[in-house]
Design a protein around this nucleic acid. Structure first.
Length: 569
DNA sequence: GCCGTTTTCGGCCCGACTGTTTTCAGTCG
């Protein structure tokens, strides 16, 4: 957790340095250190205590001092200095996909605009196209992006808060006098973008416990408070609402505040046809008696329904399915047996084959597939055919030595014309082939769809990686006719990836559900570039449950023999 | 800012694509 936080902070410093126009090499030094730290097998705090910080690749005397400063004070002065030096507008402009650091700075300096709103005005009055080197297309791209950003304003990717949710829930539960604490809202339903974090707590000492919130380790300060409700700002800058409620109404509020509006409407309809009424904090039966369920399970049970998992509470047929006893047995994290898409130092990962394999083994996986980038992705040091063979030798001997099955694979680029980066003679030698698009995603829908369909037709391809290319909160999915892609996957016996990287979660839940309906299995992969990122699997599974995934529909929940059969067919 | 030495400083991943040009700058992965 601390390693990840520090890694993010160093990346943020690198971003700010870029905006400040500092040396590219100095910037890279920060990024290298950040990646190294994210990929560490041990905690930085521990290494600081044993005086081993400079053993971390990319960490020298200067970086060590900054890490120590952060460990001791929770902040790095350099960061604050940089933040003051970069106008807030410039920082906001870099959130626009297609606007990099230099363009952001130019828009600020040359147009004199300080905020996204002012930028929009400038774009609408066609002032951007007047700048040298920019034209109407850039202007329209910026307007398009600003509209997208407005649609998701105030929302943040689930993966960004995933770790803090767990930490905060535990902290709240451990407060004296608190008997229960739970996350509610869209974050509990594991929506890919989350609007706000809200927790409710109950217990005999809940009101006294509210006084202790600012003492929690992850809390920065109290923003607003009344006796039963407090708004907090976390150290990670995220705002959280905590409400104290009585034990009596806690279970009903848990249901009420978790389900989407549509789910609650459907549930009320169902309840009323069965003689029940759901009020905001209680249930009333046909005899007009108020009933207070003891738990959420009890709540649904009183209505005559089995428990409906939070991720399903979207009004996608779950109430009817529950009533008819057709709710799926959802995929559990413990069902996962492997990760079929991870990177190593052979391409752009930060950990070696051996480090990744050992970490995967300690995750409890039965086996692992290593799928580094293919040759055309030069920036990621994509593997040439020769290095792929060399990696294969290393993987096989390591696999034997460890007594742990490691499959040889590739994340093969789907090139602009729909052909693959390696020809069949190479692909056929591999255990697993993930085919993904990394370039040319500004092509039109027809071209992009054609590329994915062509990839699905290749007999050696097993999985289509991150099929829609979305980056949560940053880039829309590229224009693809997913109906055609899913049909191609069904026709040619391929799996579609649910990439569990916090910035992707791609396929989205709707497509993943649709794919399974067509008989296309899903592969939940972390796309890990470090040992730490292997932990993304938990997020992928939690999100995948929104698509009603079961262990039957997810190929990395299958045993090795079945997976091999799938890949060889 | 780190690394790897030729111990005192030079080198540090690159190529495709796009929009704007007409040779290049910026973005992205």
């Amino acid at each position: 957790m601390e390693n990840l936080e520090l890694g993010w902070l160093l990346q943020e410093i690198a971003d700010l340095m870029e905006l400040n126009g500092e040396s590219v090499h100095r910037i890279r030094a920060y990024r290298n250190a950040a990646r190294s730290i994210e990929g560490l097998g041990r905690s930085v705090r521990e290494l600081a205590e044993t005086g081993e910080l400079q053993h971390i690749p990319g960490v020298g005397t200067s970086m060590e001092a900054k890490i120590r400063e952060w460990l001791e004070s929770g902040t790095i002065d350099e960061m604050n200095r940089l933040k003051n030096a970069v106008p807030p507008g410039v920082l906001a402009f870099t959130q626009i996909s297609g606007v990099g650091k230099k363009l952001a700075k130019r828009l600020h300096d040359d147009l004199g605009v300080e905020s996204l709103a002012e930028l929009e005005t400038a774009a609408r009055s066609q002032r951007i196209r007047d700048l040298k080197g920019l034209g109407s297309k850039t202007e329209m791209m910026i307007l398009r992006e600003l509209e997208r950003m407005q649609r998701t304003e105030g929302m943040f990717p689930l993966g960004m808060v995933w770790l803090v949710i767990e930490e905060l829930e535990k902290s709240l539960q451990s407060l004296p006098g608190v008997s229960n604490a739970a996350l509610v809202g869209d974050a509990r339903r594991c929506c890919s973008l989350v609007s706000e974090l809200e927790f409710i707590i109950c217990g005999p000492g809940r009101l006294d416990a509210m006084e202790l919130l600012d003492k929690l380790p992850c809390v920065e300060r109290i923003l607003q408070t009344d006796h039963a409700s407090t708004r907090l700002q976390l150290k990670s800058n995220i705002e959280v609402q905590v409400s104290a409620v009585s034990d009596l109404v806690y279970p009903v509020l848990l249901v009420e505040k978790t389900g989407s509006a549509a789910h609650m409407r459907r549930l009320r309809e169902y309840a009323s046809t069965n003689g029940w009424e759901i009020a905001s904090d209680s249930l009333t039966d046909a005899q007009n008696r108020v009933r207070q369920p003891r738990t959420e399970v009890d709540f649904y049970s009183l209505l005559g329904l089995p428990y409906i998992e939070p991720q399903l509470r979207e009004d996608r047929g779950e109430v009817l399915a529950a009533a008819e006893g057709r709710l799926p047995v959802l995929l559990e994290f413990s069902d996962i047996r492997s990760d079929l898409h991870i990177h190593t130092t052979y391409s752009d990962g930060v950990n070696t084959v051996e480090e990744m394999a050992k970490a995967a083994q300690s995750m409890g996986w039965d086996f692992l597939a290593i799928c580094d980038h293919s040759r055309s992705l030069t920036v990621a040091r994509g593997l040439t055919a020769e290095r792929l063979v060399q990696q294969g030798h290393e993987i096989r001997s390591l696999s034997d030595a460890m007594g742990f099955s490691i499959l040889c694979g590739i994340e093969c680029d789907i090139l602009a014309d729909g052909s693959l980066d390696f020809d069949d003679s190479i692909l056929r030698t591999l255990d697993v082939v993930v085919a993904s698009i990394h370039t040319g995603f500004r092509q039109d829908e027809h071209a992009l769809t054609h590329r994915l369909v062509q990839a699905a037709k290749n007999p050696h391809v097993d999985i289509i990686g991150h099929p829609t290319g979305r980056l949560l909160g940053y880039r829309e999915p590229y224009p693809v006719d997913m109906e055609l892609v899913m049909q191609a996957a069904a026709d040619y016996g391929k799996a579609l990836e649910l990439n569990a990287s916090p910035e992707r979660l791609d396929l989205n839940d709707s497509y993943a559900a649709a794919a399974v309906k067509l008989g296309v299995p899903v592969s939940i992969n972390t796309d890990a570039h470090s040992v730490t990122q292997l932990g993304f699997m938990e997020l992928g599974v939690a999100y995948g449950r929104r698509a009603w995934l079961t262990k039957e529909s997810v190929i990395n929940a299958w045993p090795l023999e079945r997976l091999q059969k799938f890949c060889n067919s």
